[in-house]
Simulated scan of single mutants.
Amino acid sequence: MPTITAIVVFQVLRRAGNFAIAKPIREVLFTVVPRENRYKAKNFIDTVVYLTGGQLGAWTFTGIAALGLGSTAVAVTAVPPSIAWLLISLWLGSRLEKRDDRARGGADAV
């Protein structure tokens, strides 16, 4: 029973974090994209990218389990993609800040 409780608690925390932090941050990245491109990109990301990512995650877990490895191997396998996502998000955030700084500087100069 403690395992189910832990899973429920972490799922609630993950979903709350996604809707409270991650989703709004992703939406900010789209503010610099023209409207038509924004809708095309968001639809593609919401369908193809998320569904493919979920499927790859399930296949990875199944593949690791088929090799006879346990949950530790699953956790270790998740570390490199997590680090990659962190680095990409930091890079995108810095690019957005630079773009905002340039936009403010251009507006102040006029």
Rank of each mutant, 00 (worst) to 15 (best):
E36F: 11
N37W: 14
N37M: 13
N37A: 08
Y39S: 09
K40T: 11
K40G: 14
A41E: 04
A41T: 08
A41C: 05
A41I: 08
K42Q: 11
K42N: 02
N43E: 11
F44W: 10
I45G: 00
I45M: 07
D46Q: 14
T47H: 13
T47G: 11
T47L: 13
V48D: 07
V48Y: 03
V48E: 09
V49D: 02
Y50V: 08
T52I: 13
T52C: 06
T52A: 06
G54I: 05
G54E: 06
G54A: 07
L56K: 02
L56R: 04
L56N: 06
L56C: 12
G57E: 02
G57K: 02
G57A: 07
A58G: 11
A58R: 07
W59V: 10
W59F: 14
T60V: 04
T60S: 07
T60W: 01
T62N: 14
T62E: 13
T62V: 15
I64H: 00
I64Q: 01
I64N: 00
A65I: 14
A66M: 13
A66F: 06
A66Y: 02
A66T: 11
L67G: 15
L67K: 11
G68K: 03
G68Q: 06
S71Q: 15
T72E: 14
T72V: 11
A73L: 13
A73D: 11
A73F: 12
V74S: 08
V74F: 15
V76T: 12
V76A: 15
V76G: 07
V76M: 15
T77I: 04
T77S: 11
A78I: 10
A78K: 05
V79D: 00
V79T: 07
P80S: 03
P80D: 05
P80V: 06
P80H: 03
S82I: 03
S82L: 09
I83F: 03
I83H: 05
I83G: 05
I83T: 11
A84W: 10
A84N: 00
A84Q: 05
A84D: 01
W85I: 11
W85Y: 03
L86P: 01
L86F: 03
L87A: 13
L87K: 10
I88R: 00
S89C: 05
S89M: 07
S89D: 04
S89T: 09
L90M: 06
